[in-house]
Amino acid sequence: MKACWYEKTGPARDVLQFGDIETPVAKAGEARIKIYASGINPADVKLRSGFSTYGYNFPFVIPNSDGAGVIDQVGKGVAEELLESRVWFFNGQRLGRAYGSGAEFITLNTKYITPLPEGIPFDEGATLGIPAMTAYHSLFSDGPVAGKTVLVTGGSGAVGFYCVSLASWGGARVLATVSSVEKGENAKIGGATDIINYKTEDVAHRIDKLTNGAGVDRVISVDFADSLPWLPKVIKKNGCVVAYASDTDRSPQIDFFSFMRNNIQIRPFILNALPQKHLDDAQFGINKWLNESPSALRPVAANLPLSRMIEAHELVESGSKFGTVVVSP
């Protein structure tokens, strides 16, 4: 099969290769998917660059965790009825797995595979995976959001946009922070009612005015350390902040009492360490959203041929895109 891979970490142009390798065979509990679209996340380029490793030590790695395609082979213990099913998947290059979706085929445990509703194109299906799963768990693991006020930081990002969309679908009032007017317009498409430009505005002051001093029920943070100076000022008593990254500072110091006195919960998480029930809940919830909101935007920043993986990874790293960069075999 055609595939991209790297044998050492580093810049995309220095390490990514493209060629032919052996086609995998589904093992017990697995299905093989003929990939029609492979989604590239920031975490994927961090792994390739060496910024993150997750303890990988393999002769070579096929990048990218997410994708969409059609099941063409099943292993022992997997129902043959799944053959020819359209699916989306996540955790391809995670959890000790070196062989991701940057290829024509992938074999994967069926617990990471979800039916792709008819009418959803494969490239849009490939944008789900880690971004939508992370967004769903961030929002709903503390209960329904209907009638609540949710603040999403980075509301135009891959995860942030899905947070905005899912929170709006769930019945929340959604506030979003962004860094430009253009990104603010993107967040509005997802359903944000109020936009805060953190480059030009005092976030805490603006939220105070927007909520008449009440604050927000939940904050979904793309960078906990960066949000930390104003977080305890904007969250209601018994509210929470859920953080799925903290790239500015991985070891931030917090004013413990400022959170404790209002019983504000701080909950960091990483998708690949969640219990299976939480993953199942997210997969089910995302498909419910897809079926109830078929016209919702699932942004594809670019769809490039698999052979242009270098360009695709560089586009993700540029920070200039809106949505998920996809490559198609």
Rank of each mutant, 00 (worst) to 15 (best):
G67T: 04
L108I: 15
T107M: 05
A135Q: 12
V159T: 05
G92N: 14
L82P: 05
T114A: 08
W88P: 01
T153N: 11
A167R: 13
W88A: 05
G160D: 12
L82Y: 12
S65N: 03
S101A: 07
D142S: 14
S165H: 00
A176R: 10
F122K: 15
G155W: 05
S49F: 02
F140E: 00
T177A: 12
V87N: 14
F90T: 13
N64K: 02
T127V: 09
E84W: 01
I40L: 13
V150M: 10
G170M: 15
W88N: 04
K148R: 09
Y112T: 05
V159A: 05
F89Y: 15
Q73K: 11
P42W: 14
G125A: 06
V159G: 07
A158R: 09
V87G: 13
T53Y: 04
G125N: 04
I113R: 01
Y99T: 14
G50D: 07
N64R: 01
S165D: 06
A132C: 06
L139A: 05
V164H: 14
G171P: 00
G125C: 01
Y136F: 15
I71L: 15
T107E: 11
W169A: 14
G129W: 07
V174P: 00
G125W: 02
A132V: 03
A43W: 01
F60S: 12
E84M: 04
T153E: 12
P59H: 05
G50T: 02
T53Q: 15
P115H: 08
W88R: 03
V150W: 09
A98G: 13
T149I: 13
L108P: 02
A79C: 07
T53E: 07
E84C: 03
K111Y: 08
L116W: 04
K46D: 01
A146G: 12
N41I: 06
V61S: 09
L151S: 09
F105I: 04
I40T: 06
G125K: 02
V87E: 04
S156V: 00
G155K: 06
F60I: 02
S101E: 03
N109P: 00
I130P: 03
G96H: 07
G160V: 10
V174G: 14
S179F: 05
F140Y: 15
R97P: 00
Y112C: 12
D142R: 14
S101H: 01
G92E: 14
V164R: 11
P115C: 09
P42I: 12
N57G: 08
N57I: 00
L47F: 02
V78W: 10
A126H: 02
P42T: 07
L151T: 08
S179T: 03
T153I: 00
F140R: 05
E124L: 02
P117H: 14
S65M: 01
V150R: 08
T110S: 04
S141H: 13
Y54D: 12
G92Q: 08
